[in-house]
Nucleic acid binder design. Structure first.
Lengths: 155, 155
DNA sequence: GTGCTTGCAAAGACTTTGCAAACTT
DNA sequence: AAGTTTGCAAAGTCTTTGCAAGCAC
């Protein structure tokens, strides 16, 4: 139960059976592949790794699983206003994260910004809005880029 | 010059000629159509209105113009992590805006959040990052939805 | 005239869906 | 057995691109 994979797996199982859905081999592999991902991954990244665990996982199944993983709270969408959609594993820590996106290499880093959360909430609630989710995105040049004109970690 | 269309048009003209590009009828119509847009619009919204002004504006031309409009600073991309990309006219006011997205009807509202800007900047610069752009996105239920379970303005 | 622009249609990238077979419960 | 899930392939959606004709400068 302290194993993050176990924990996630049983959480997903539970979610599925509550909705009358089933845990299949393919879904197991997809959950397993979550743990070999970087902090931010694309649908395609996840598919490739899921197929390493079980080559019968098809693209269709992966795309059918993503909404379930999001709805169950296991992952979240991280849209960075670039071309691709990214996803990220929801960590246990409930700290509000700001996403810092390097404008050169598109690398994404999460930084803690707990104060942000408070601020966004208080502004929104003054307007009568009930906040469900919020994110701060910062586009910036990373230190590597500023020094050398190029990101050392460029993909 | 006080006319926002005039102002925008000449700004775009200038931008184009600096880059050795040309002002065409189609580009004029696209700029004209910017002013019949809501605060946030899609490529398709803009195309439809540009075609009302000049039916010869093609989808290809619209898509070829968008990057130019962004690069010239006339519009900006507003990615809300939903399915579509949105664009918005850059207003003269340089106030930092937070985007509040109604999770029911997907309507987007901008609210001023000048303090946010300061905070995001100060956090990022502590990390050695040079901020180029930032945005706060808040997903929330709007007041209509909370009262009636449905957005009055639902599209 | 030079070479940027255009519309068209085809191609791309990514995601969704219909269907019959297979599998979970 | 009942009903969900699967892979496949086709279809969708949105955006980009090659090309030859047209237009701005």
């Amino acid at each position: 139960m302290s194993n993050p994979y176990q924990e996630t797996w049983s959480r997903f199982s539970e979610f599925l059976s509550e909705k009358g859905l089933r845990m299949t081999d393919q879904r197991k592999s997809i959950v397993g592949a979550l743990f070999s991902q970087d902090a931010h991954f694309t649908a395609d990244d996840l598919l490739k790794d899921a197929q390493k665990l079980d080559e019968t996982v098809s693209r269709a199944t992966l795309y059918r699983s993503l909404p379930l993983l999001v709805e169950s709270g296991i992952i979240r969408m991280v849209d960075v206003g670039q071309d691709n959609k990214f996803y990220a594993l929801n960590s246990q820590s409930e700290n509000f994260k700001a996403q810092v996106i390097c404008s050169d290499c598109n690398r994404i880093e999460d930084i803690d910004a707990p104060f942000m959360e408070w601020y966004g909430k208080s502004v929104s609630e003054k307007l009568g809005l009930k906040v469900k989710d919020q994110r701060l995105q910062v586009q910036a040049e990373c230190p590597d880029f500023r020094k050398s004109g190029k990101c050392s970690k460029e993909s």
